[in-house]
Amino acid sequence: MSWYKRISENILTPTSEKKEVPDGIWTQCPGCKTAISTKTIHKNAYVCTTCNHHLQIGSREYFEILFDENEFTEMDANMISADPLEFKDTKAYPDRLIDSIKKTKLKDAVRTAHGKSNGLDLVVVCMDFSFIGGSMGSVVGEKICNAVKFCIENRFPLLIISRSGGARMMEGALSLMQMAKISANLALLSQNGLPYISLMTDPTTGGVTASYAMLGDLNIAEPNALIGFAGPRVIKETIGQNLPEGFQRSEFLLEHGFLDFIIDRKDLKDKLSSLLKIMQKLPSGE
């Protein structure tokens, strides 16, 4: 496939997306503290080869894992947060945004893209926790709603990968309303009979859990991810006692009936294709 052909198909993966990791760099697994070659971990879908700990990754890595040849078209790539409340705490919100943009090389806490995954059309929404705790403000709401509309127009399935501390305080009630806005648009997606898979990763809490993360046709999660409405610290303070082992982890939610299944990141792509084909009544060999 020539470069020009790729342009005409609107596939514009910037070179910076394509990660080359030199040999001889090591990563310490936050789970088991084993030092593993970074290249090995990357090849293993950013999962520790010793203890299966799923490293916290962002949209760059998930797009690389899910899209064939890491080729995708990003949507709304130039959308950034405004400051409708002129919010200031210990720091003015615009300064916080600029710092986060510089630090993360991202523009906000979500990226949306479409492309092929195992040859199937797929729209992927992926949150970036590194950007102000993956918090949901107007940009997250607007980008997700645009992605949903794109799915409806093109009859594509939707995957949302959540990793977020919840709604973004600095946009006040506007952040809260993104929960309503996204949920309403997901209702339209559902009425159009298009599959929506919600993947929850570590951590997924607050307003994200209380809206789109829990509204998938399938709600799935990575192993041992913290998933909840209220954070563990708040609950602990409310009830005045320690929380049981494994509380609010993926396995706990599965046992209580709130997840369809838990998926190892290494198996994610193939499992998604298999299910999406079944849900869209496509032949298995496609």
Binding site: L186, A187, S211, M214, L215, F229, I235, F247
Partner: peptide, 25 residues
């Protein structure tokens, strides 16, 4: 919404999310 242990066990997030979707239509 009540931030309690049992509220989490019984899916506080899911309950609110479901209402948002259903009320919108």
């Amino acid at each position: 919404a009540y931030p309690g242990l049992e509220a989490e066990e019984r899916g506080q997030g899911e309950a609110i999310a479901r209402n948002l979707l259903e009320m919108s239509v």
